[in-house]
């Protein structure tokens, strides 16, 4: 039996008050390798809290989070940083590209801290940009890129280290419908290539691309029953 990429056991996050806000109530969830999961829910329902916990950007107040079978709640900041750098790729709604660095340099940033020789980093970054269809724009500055292109650079940055988990926070939130469709196609291809993907979205169209949809409401996770489209 393979180890699931994500296993949550009673994971919860309460923001200290006053009054304390239970942003995520104790949740259990298992995502197998190669899975494609959408998390949907209205604003303020706890989507981002879940993403931050899964991305190791925040720590839970209770429960445990196993990434590739490893209990992350027992790790110190140094080890969590190592996991963030290697095992998790995050794509943000706001792209978060460094404005004065080229597309290639922005992707290289994700490899800066992980002890890879410089020449290997360059090759991996160019390959990642090539994989998202931007092999011809390596030296473009973010200011000259369209929204769709910027988000592709951000995806290239997230997957350059071949992480176990690709977390996407409203990846189409800042894109027009045509760019959004093209981006979802890219995510489909990446999932087909073996990446485990979790997309956080309030867009039903985006959620429809995932094989599995989890609804979050008032901090409570619930699995949406599979609908047979056939």
């Amino acid at each position: 039996m393979t180890v699931p990429v994500i296993e949550l056991r009673g994971l919860a996050r309460t923001y200290p008050g006053p009054p304390p806000v239970p942003a995520l109530r104790p949740a259990d969830l298992v995502i197998e390798a190669g899975g494609y999961v959408a998390v949907t829910g209205p604003s303020g329902s706890g989507k981002s809290t879940l993403l931050h916990l899964l991305g190791l950007l925040d720590s839970p107040t209770e429960g445990s989070y196993l990434l590739d079978g490893l209990d992350t709640s027992a790790l110190n900041d140094r080890d969590r940083s190592a996991l963030r750098g290697r095992q998790i790729g995050v794509v943000f709604q706001a792209f978060h590209l460094l404005p004065y660095r080229t597309a290639l340099e922005n992707v290289l940033l994700a490899e800066l801290y992980n002890q890879t020789p410089r020449s290997d980093r360059l090759r991996a970054a160019a390959d990642a940009l090539d994989a998202v269809g931007l092999g011809h724009r390596l030296d473009a500055l973010p200011t000259t890129l369209s929204g769709g292109e910027s988000q592709r650079v951000a995806i290239a940055r997230a997957l350059v280290n071949r992480p176990s988990l690709l977390l996407c926070d409203e990846p189409t939130g800042n894109l027009d419908s045509r760019n959004a469709a093209s981006l979802m196609e890219l995510l489909d291809q990446l999932n087909a290539a073996g990446f485990t993907i979790m997309v956080i979205t309030h867009d039903a169209g985006v959620a429809a691309h995932a094989g599995r949809t989890i609804v979050i409401s008032d901090g409570v996770l619930s699995e949406r029953i599979e609908v047979d489209h056939a």
Binding site: L75, A82, G85, R86, Y113, N114, Q115
Partner: peptide, 11 residues
Amino acid sequence: RSLTGLPLPRL
């Protein structure tokens, strides 16, 4: 390497 078996982040 860290506890995770991954190389430690380094600059």
